[in-house]
């Protein structure tokens, strides 16, 4: 069964250019096709018509690299829960539907072109302490420090973040709290992360603010949009870590 869709897509020539929606129609779409494969087909069509294809990012196309990310009908990564844009299948859209496609919008994620945004702010947040300082070669035996299974599992739940930025795109304040909290939680849960925990949370939170992300006011939209189901309990843990660090002094 081949399906047909009307697309309203955000086009923007460059970071400083004005943007606008443009309308397109695609035909012969298979239900098993992914949303990005549907856009591939549109781009083939545009190329043949001598027009410029729609720029969008993707890489793994299996929901793990975090490179893709579109706002589809107003929802970051589209209507399916726990699904990235690249994993989203066309069978979830009725034949003949009109679909609106926009980039992840936030002041801290400037649009580079069409649907491609600059998320390098996330890297700078990680560079501000989202690591454990251990030089190559200096590690003790991996089994030297046992970690209770539930703690390891909880750390893994937080570490599963793919850094796609859907949390920011979904948040009315464009806050990066969920992203930042996921990394802080992951490392704060593990004994290996303890020596640097105070400095880490202080610096990462400061960097997050510096990048121009908004404040978290507990809307919870981030958790709902997160394709990996990262829990907002991590934000609570980040706050606790932050208070703990500040009450212990040693501000950075």
């Amino acid at each position: 069964m081949a399906m047909k869709y009307h697309l309203r897509i955000w086009r923007q020539a460059g970071p400083d250019e004005p943007g606008r929606f443009e309308d397109y129609t695609v035909d012969n779409i298979e239900p098993d096709m992914s949303f990005l494969e549907m856009l591939d087909i549109l781009n083939e069509q545009l190329t043949k018509e001598g027009k410029e294809p729609v720029a969008f990012d993707s890489d793994c196309r299996e929901g793990i690299c975090g490179m893709c990310g579109l706002v589809i009908d107003g929802m970051a990564h589209g209507p399916r829960r726990l699904t990235t844009t690249c994993e989203l299948r066309m069978r979830h859209f009725p034949d003949g539907a009109t679909i609106t496609v926009e980039p992840f919008r936030a002041d801290a994620f400037p649009v580079l072109k069409d649907l491609v945004v600059d998320r390098s702010a996330f890297d700078r947040i990680i560079a501000a302490g989202g690591y454990i300082s251990v030089n190559t070669g200096s590690a003790p035996d991996a089994n030297a420090i046992p970690i209770p299974k539930p703690i390891a599992e909880e750390a893994m739940d937080a570490a599963a973040c793919i850094g796609c930025g859907a949390c920011v795109a979904a948040c009315p304040n464009a806050s990066a709290a969920l992203f930042t909290a996921a990394k802080i939680s992951h490392l704060a849960l593990l004994p290996q992360g303890h020596p640097e925990r105070e400095r880490r949370v202080q610096r990462m939170v400061a960097q997050m603010d510096l990048e121009g992300f908004g404040n978290c006011s507990n809307h919870g939209e981030c958790e709902a949009a997160c394709p990996k189901g990262i829990s907002i309990l991590n934000i609570a843990r980040m706050r606790r870590e932050f208070i703990r660090a500040n009450t212990r002094g040693s501000a950075v």
Binding site: I132, S138, A142, A152, A155, A159, H186, L187, L190, Q192
Partner: peptide
């Protein structure tokens, strides 16, 4: 090395 970095391997 990976465990020291905080890689949450299965336990």
């Amino acid at each position: 090395q990976a465990v020291a970095q905080g890689v949450p391997f299965a336990r």
